[in-house]
Structures are given as structure tokens and as C-alpha cells.
Nucleic acid binder design. Structure first.
Lengths: 152, 152
DNA sequence: ATGCGTGCAAAGTCTTTGCAGCTTC
DNA sequence: GAAGCTGCAAAGACTTTGCACGCAT
């Protein structure tokens, strides 16, 4: 199953142009790739690069890094720090797609879960400080049952 | 004001020994440094290195990286991913010291806030999956009032 | 026509690792 | 005494940047 698209190429173009920037084939393909991603899947810059190459889309790693960072700043993508040492990106979905992460420090296992209270709490906190919310994530770090069985 | 110590050098030694590991002067000094840190302050590996050098404690960067990662895995330190591209560490405090982060993608400003519901929610989620909680953090990413005034 | 965006290659930053010698248990 | 730990230097992984050319507006 694929997540429903929340951001069209036209909307992206309009927003870019409003800032004096340009729509490009690369940006459109990157947006489309994330929109076609099954729910819960997230890509690193390298993952995205490979996936595009398999579709015969040659987009340089530089452009990918530049684009995902830009889209994260625009609120189109969520930038995730999971257990590994590189960032992952996924489409920033509204409730009820929004999910959070439970991470094991020993096995690096990541479990996703949903919780409606988190967004409500985040909205309230952001309001208090005048922030516009792009994304919120509850990261629970702990030790999984498998991890508890190993010494470290 | 300094946070109250929740983990003594003796307790650290006992826990290390129980795993067949050793207590060392370096580990004790690193623990002490975090315990003397004002509430809300967090250090990167580099920060910690500089701070120790100012106290004439020569501990190599390698050892610092190895030690903070170990302490994070033990649940003694929290490993934070703030707006910058390197990790920060702080003592992992129980309620009511526990705090969360509101981060601006444009200005990199970070605001800390507390919320009692988060820990409760985290505990419940972790229980469901059999995880032991070491740390939980609500990361709200958005645009601050100052950021909203700039084009990007 | 202007100036933003891309690709390439090089550089940069943060972090990890191999190894010899030292230290703790 | 055995095994873990440290410091050093080198390597590694991921990400950013300078520049010339191309493309969207």
C-alpha cells in the first residue's frame, strides 16, 4: 500500500517560485519517489540515489543531499535520526500517518508506533513559543527484549 | 545551579565490574564533568574534550567518543541530536529534570521544555514491546518567529 | 537574458578503528 | 597475569562546497 500524496508537483513549483527558486526535473522526481514509498519506509540519501538509478534517473548525490535538506526545511520531508549514523527521510504526513520511534541501543532495532496525543502536545508547546510545527517525533531509546539477553 | 548527582563513581564501578569491565580515572572524570554541568547544558565530544583540557585533564578524543557512547548505551547519558550535525550528551535525569526540544530548522534555535505526559506515554509504549526505557525525547521541529520573518 | 540548479571532484566534519603499551582486577 | 583501556595516527562514513555549464523563468 502506498501513502496518499499530500503535495503535488504543481504545489511544489508554486512554493519554489514564490521564493524566487526553480522547479526542476530532479526535484520533481525526488518528490515523486517519496510519494510512491510504502508507508513506514524511509530512505537515506544513498538509498534514494540507488533507487533513482534503478529507474534510470541519473541524479547526482550532491543534488540529492541539497534537495532533501531543502524539502525538510520546507516541511515536505521529515528528517529522521534513527539508530544508524546517517539521516533518513520520508514524506511528512499528517495524522493519522504520523508515527514515532522506539529504538534499541543494543540491537539497533527500530519499532514504529502511532500516538495521537503527541501531535496535540506538540502543537500546544509550539503555540506557546510562536513556532510553526513542521514535524514532531517521540524518540524512545531503550533496550529491546533481545538486547536484554545480550551482555552488550 | 547544578543538577543533583544520580550516579556515583562507585555505582559506575560496580556496574562496569559486573560486566567484566574496568573503572578508570578517565571514566570517572568524564562522569564527574557531566554531573557538574548546569541543568540544561549539553556537551559534544569536542566540548567535553576542551572542558577537560581546561582542567588539565588530558583525555584523548578517542577515549571520549568511546566513553560517551558506552555511557549512553548504559543509560547514564542521553544522546541528543539537536539542530547541528554532531551529537550532544547530557546526564540522563529522571523526572522532573527530563526535558524535550523544540528546534527551528531555519535559525537552529533550540528551546527546551518539560512535559510530564511524555514519560508516561513512553513507558506505556515501551511496556507494550517489552523494552526497558533508557531515555525518551519529544523533538518538535518547526519554524521560530524569527525564522518566519526570513525567506529561508 | 538572468541567475538559480546541477554534476563533478575535492574538501570537510565528525567519528571509528588498529595497535602498542599501560592499567585494573 | 590476563584482559580491558588509552592514546596516537590513520582511516572511514557521510555530507558539503567551489566552479563551470546548463536550464527554468
Amino acid at each position: 500500500m502506498t501513502t496518499e500524496s499530500v503535495y503535488t508537483a504543481e504545489a511544489l513549483k508554486a512554493e519554489l517560485n514564490s521564493k524566487g527558486w526553480r522547479m526542476t526535473p530532479q526535484r520533481e522526481k525526488i518528490l515523486r519517489t517519496f510519494q510512491n514509498l510504502p508507508e513506514g519506509e524511509h530512505l537515506s540519501a544513498e538509498d534514494l540515489h540507488h533507487r533513482l538509478q534503478q529507474e534510470n534517473e541519473n541524479i547526482s548525490l550532491s543534488t540529492i543531499y541539497r534537495t532533501v535538506k531543502m524539502m525538510a526545511r520546507m516541511g515536505i520531508l521529515r528528517e529522521l535520526e534513527l539508530a544508524e549514523d546517517h539521516k533518513h527521510y520520508e514524506l511528512n504526513q499528517p495524522r493519522p500517518y504520523h508515527h514515532h520511534h522506539l529504538i534499541c541501543v543494543r540491537t539497533n532495532k527500530v519499532i514504529e508506533f502511532k500516538n495521537d496525543q503527541i501531535l496535540t502536545i506538540s502543537q500546544k508547546v509550539a503555540d506557546k513559543y510562536g513556532f510553526q510545527v513542521l514535524d514532531c517525533e517521540l524518540r524512545i531509546v531503550g533496550i529491546s527484549p533481545e538486547g536484554q539477553r545480550s551482555v552488550f
